[in-house]
Amino acid sequence: MKRLTTLFTAVAAIALFAMMLLTFADVFSRKFLTNSITGAVELTELFMLVMIFFALPLASMAGEHIVFDLLDKALPRMLLRWQQTLSHGLTTAIFGGAAWVVWERAQRTAEYGDTTSALEIKIAPFQTLASVMLVVTALVHGVLAWRAARGADLPQHDETAAREAS
């Protein structure tokens, strides 16, 4: 488990760092070496996909998705437990469904043979990867639902999830 989180973090981190270096290198090369880096835009887009979908299960695991938690204080423990089970259960289903539709889309993209424009990199494998990571995210919420049903880690009001929305 720990190893898997480390791996996902590392992949997402490398993708993000690469995006940063690539943008910088692109600007630098255009300004001082007179030419843009071929494929900078499309590589950025692929890095985005990798970064987002590897970080997604991590965000779920860390409880960083924004929820409306005002009622936490008011609800009795028992109800809170069912509410948690239900919401994580539903979220499991939604991410599972998302994984399925993205999988189907990846199949179709493969069939079309879609590539990026300059480097002609196949797009379908990246969508398949996104689909797999959505399955992982669904699994995370499944585990959370199961734990909630057993009364484990119910939300406290002073939850310190880093909500870095705006």
Partner: peptide, 9 residues
């Protein structure tokens, strides 16, 4: 990097 990636996700 990890925190930024999670926040972005």
């Amino acid at each position: 990097l990890g925190e930024s990636a999670r926040t972005s996700a």
